[in-house]
Design a protein around this nucleic acid. Structure first.
Lengths: 98, 98
DNA sequence: TAGACTAGTTTGTGACATAGACTAGTCTGC
DNA sequence: GCAGACTAGTCTATGTCACAAACTAGTCTA
């Protein structure tokens, strides 16, 4: 019992944060999304989204490639294998603990 | 889809925090626990536990009564109806969103 | 060529989780 | 009877981090 409860303390804080959880959940379902799409679907402000994406990229959960759509910059994000695994782990942990 | 995703942003941060999630999960299963029991089952430091309990009490999620066990102070905690409802909501939200 | 727009990044602020230091009182050995 | 160890918590200083507003950089359009 207490062992199961204490598993909660080991939760991946990077994914646990609601803003980032939304991002990885979206990316998990579409497998590729640009900044604008994420901005719309998550409802996060651009600043917020930018920071969280950077964090997820640093951690290797999300791969970000910067190209152009016509003449405008385009930021395309997709979940890495690591990220997908971490999300799966997160889901499993919550299912067991709650 | 994006509506469902954005529900995540509305998650109850008070319960979402792992330390407090452990506390309410324990209280939900036993319905009454003293400080020491929570200290042991959650693995939180006493300082940490004290602060989180205060927060949960302020929010009306947890009722705290202070008495004595023999000559020593005794802090007994239990989940209020509000707290139990909030935990149920939290579980439902995660189930739907993930 | 000025103003509005696209697409994002940087940064200042405030909130908050955490654990170590502290308070208050009780027991125990000398 | 009093010094040190212990019980049971609370207080507080620190660092981290989420958030959004301000900013950068470039493009369109009238």
């Amino acid at each position: 019992m207490s062992a199961k409860i204490q598993r909660i303390a080991e939760v991946d804080r990077l994914i646990h944060e609601p803003a980032r959880l939304m991002i990885v959940a979206v990316l998990d379902s579409v497998e590729e999304a640009d900044f604008q799409y994420l901005h719309l679907t998550t409802g996060l402000t651009k600043g917020n989204l930018s920071v969280h994406l950077s964090r997820l990229e640093e951690a290797g959960y999300v791969a970000i490639s910067k190209t152009f759509r016509g003449k405008y910059p385009l930021t395309v994000c997709r979940l890495t294998d690591t990220g997908a695994q971490k999300l799966a782990d997160y889901r499993k942990l919550l299912k067991v603990a709650l």
